[in-house]
């Protein structure tokens, strides 16, 4: 989807397919996904839980968990194909050129090593520096993520930090080697609401300071509204719509994007009282990915679905500058599936 004249994307994912080969059948968790990330851009990857966002992110680092296998597609990152690199070459990409912030800070730090120990290990490994230089780098990063008295924190253990602090440490860990791309997988989902905003602001600030690109994975339209330059909407292992953030919010085209936006709490609605817990949700259940719906995967829950949506799987179609949508009702072509 590179626009004419645009710089070559930092990350270009084409027709990526990742399937889980389980006893119960083949789970088509990621089934033909395209997106690109430009240098210094934040791409919001949005979709309901179970739509394949985490599997996609892990696959970008070539860490999709067993029994998953990449069964098709390309991942070009900094001009090289991630999927054909040797395992040894990948250890030079992970943490150094592309890093990840995980969903649950409570579990993503090793409980038995001090902060300085586990972050220092990464710097020493990638930068081939000694302990003193490594510690200096870790201290600097801890200071940048807003941790007070970073020198003393080096000796602390994860259980001595609050959830928000842990996530700051995880962000520091991701930025240790100045990566070109940070994958943030629901970085605020497991935090208190008050802390969420702080962490999001921190990510924005650091992204500018480090001139990093970011893939921000979330199920929360509110989060991408605040953070993303462009947004890719994912449903049941496929991409529904991609556009710049303003377009997604002003004129969403895919019925699923519209449904997601309608399910978003708005400031102009008065959700303040007991309505707060009864946000509108999208009718129907997320599909079973072992036997996904035929045709368009969203058709069973789609208010606009017609007879052809049941038979034909829509392909992405450019309908405006940088705006693609996969919907037969919006002019996509497709193949019977």
């Amino acid at each position: 989807m590179t626009e004419p004249g645009a710089a070559r994307p930092l990350l270009d994912v084409r027709d990526l397919r990742v399937h889980f080969f389980t006893g119960a059948g083949i789970v088509r968790a990621v089934d033909g996904v395209d997106f690109a990330v430009q240098p210094q851009e934040t791409l919001g990857l949005v979709g309901e839980s179970g739509s394949g966002k985490t599997v996609t992110s892990l696959t970008l680092l070539r860490l999709s968990p067993r029994p998953a296998r990449v069964v098709g597609g390309r991942i070009d990152f900094e001009g090289e194909d991630i999927l054909t690199k040797s395992e040894k070459a990948m250890t030079g990409v992970r943490g150094k050129r592309m890093a990840m912030v995980f969903q649950n800070p409570a579990y993503s730090l090793n409980p038995i090593y001090s902060i300085g120990d586990q972050l220092g290990e990464i710097v020493r490994w990638h930068e081939k520096v000694g302990r003193r230089e490594g510690d200096a780098r870790v201290t600097e990063l801890l200071r940048l993520v807003g941790i007070t008295d970073p020198g003393a924190r080096l000796r602390q253990f994860p259980h001595e930090l609050s959830g928000g602090m842990k996530q700051r440490v995880c962000i520091a860990r991701a930025l240790l080697c100045n990566p070109a791309l940070v994958l943030a997988d629901e970085p605020t989902t497991n935090l208190d609401v008050t802390i969420q905003a702080q962490i999001l602001d921190l990510l924005l600030e650091l992204k500018d300071r480090f001139r990093t690109s970011m893939v921000l994975v979330t199920h929360d339209m509110g989060v991408v509204a605040r953070m993303a330059d462009r947004i890719t909407v994912m449903y049941a292992g496929r991409i529904c719509e991609t556009a710049d953030a303003r377009t997604i919010f002003r004129s969403p085209q895919h019925p699923y994007t519209r449904a997601l936006l309608e399910s978003m709490p708005r400031v102009d609605h008065s959700y303040a009282r007991d309505d707060a817990r009864r946000l509108p949700v999208i009718a129907g259940r997320p599909p079973n990915l072992i036997e996904p719906p035929t045709g368009c995967r969203f058709h069973p829950r789609c208010p606009e679905a017609g007879e052809e949506c049941r038979r034909i799987m829509p392909e992405p179609k450019a309908i405006g500058p940088g705006h693609t949508v996969s919907c037969l009702k919006r002019g996509s072509s497709g193949v019977a599936a």
């Binding site: 680092l61 250890t91 030079g92 943490g95 890093a99 990840m100 579990y107 990464i122 080697c177």
Partner: peptide, 17 residues
């Protein structure tokens, strides 16, 4: 199965380590 193992991998540490 823990996330911190995946996080260690995602930080580029070799599998043995």
């Amino acid at each position: 199965r823990h996330d911190f193992i995946m996080a260690a991998r995602a930080s580029g540490l070799p599998e043995r380590r």
